[in-house]
Write a protein that binds this DNA or RNA. Structure first.
Lengths: 233, 233
DNA sequence: CTCATTATTATGTATAGACATATAAACAAT
DNA sequence: ATTGTTTATATGTCTATACATAATAATGAG
């Protein structure tokens, strides 16, 4: 097969993908080395390298020096999970957005937050509680902790007109984060805030973001019944 | 700044990252072009290209021909969401795994599935209902539809000893998929299967996978109370 | 002034060649 | 048998150069 039609890295990638999906190269298989593929495809080794590297990045190939390139046994797919500005999410669905701050105070956080954010025992955090509404109906309850030692800019913000969610997304870059998804049954407290029945199933996101080794913020978002989060893999 | 210490693409990437995080280059800013950076860093343009391309892939830079390279205003982070073999997930937590097939039949699916899987109106699907258990307690309820026209291999499988989840992950590669996360309140049906209280909040994953333009399978996973899904961004 | 054409420019990509680096496998020494 | 050393090899990366491509900016025709 000395086909001269593989002259760019995308077409090489497509051909490799075809061979993987057609099970010509099965999961776990060692595929020919770059030099051989370059000869077969009639292109430079760098072009093959670009294609295989890209497939390795997306998790379909495992590459190791000297050992060669193998088709991944159980590929892990990447999904894009953005941290949305809730206002835009609601307005994007064609609803009118309303935001309401319930409380704001600087306090010593509970043990759970200290652990999750790896705080010093005497760190005082800004605790914000608020609700985002769509067409007047509660959409999501935001329960947030912000570390003012890491984000000193926060001291000048009142969070009356702009939610902590929006302000943080717009102003504070982060280097990493972790997210936990779960469900809970509404207690009297949540059912009151979200205007739903008690013990109703609610979708929950717990998320912390970090800069360097320090936690910027940790938030629990409890969504009103019916909320769905969608993504592609 | 004619520092000669940027001789590989990672160090160039690190320096660019530093300038972004230190807000020397702010979100929205146009950064110097590749040729200028190459001169500044004392390396080839291709090296700068590799670094910037990588940062663009991870969403921190926006690049357009002629227009140049800008720092992304609202970066979207990528998370790795694998499709786990539930057996391994349970055993990985140190519990003993048990799988139980409740029903298996080939039928014309309901409207919702026809729509979600973009089926022809007369497509008959294999409908599988089963439960995965950890230490004898229900862990997740699996309600799955498989298209035997797309996956003819499925006709030879009984799903008595191996769950459809595990068989599909091990044997059927897919090219894309979509996932929806939500919560529901347990009905009498779910509370019976998952041994939980009626109306308790349950975490739900709806997932479809595709090969080319055709849906391979669509599944609803309803998890027992307390389940959490975790990922990093 | 408007619209189509052309020039300019920044990124995108291909190439050959060279060297770097990790590491499996063969071999040697204990 | 175990440990340490060498060697061969596949991937990783850099370089200089060239051309491709997209898109903005400048230009000119009507």
């Amino acid at each position: 097969m000395s086909d001269l039609s593989f002259r760019n890295w995308q077409s090489v990638q497509d051909e490799v993908l075809r061979r993987i999906n057609s099970r010509l190269w099965k999961p776990g298989d060692l595929i020919p080395n770059e030099a051989e593929l370059a000869t077969e495809f009639g292109c430079a080794r760098a072009t093959v390298n670009r294609a295989l590297q890209n497939l390795a990045d997306s998790g379909l190939l495992d590459r190791r020096r000297k050992a060669g390139t193998r088709v991944t046994l159980h590929p892990i797919r990447k999904a894009t999970l953005d941290i949305p500005v809730i206002r835009r999410e609601i307005e994007g669905k064609g609803h009118t957005y309303l935001y309401s701050l319930i409380s704001s105070q600087t306090v010593i956080p509970p043990q759970g937050i200290i652990g999750r954010m790896q705080l010093k025992p005497d760190d005082r955090l800004l605790h914000l509680v608020c609700v985002h509404m769509a067409d007047g109906k509660p959409y999501v309850f935001e329960n947030r902790w912000i570390n003012p030692r890491v984000v000193p800019e926060v001291s000048g913000v009142r969070f009356i007109d702009q939610s902590p969610n929006e302000w943080l997304v717009e102003n504070i870059p982060f280097s990493s984060g972790d997210i936990t998804f779960s469900a809970l049954s509404a207690t009297k407290f949540e059912s009151g805030i979200l205007a739903c029945k008690e013990s109703e199933g609610l979708f929950v996101i717990d998320r912390s973001t970090w800069r360097g080794g320090e936690a910027i913020t940790s938030v629990r978002l409890i969504f009103a019944p019916g909320y769905q989060m969608h993504t592609d893999i």
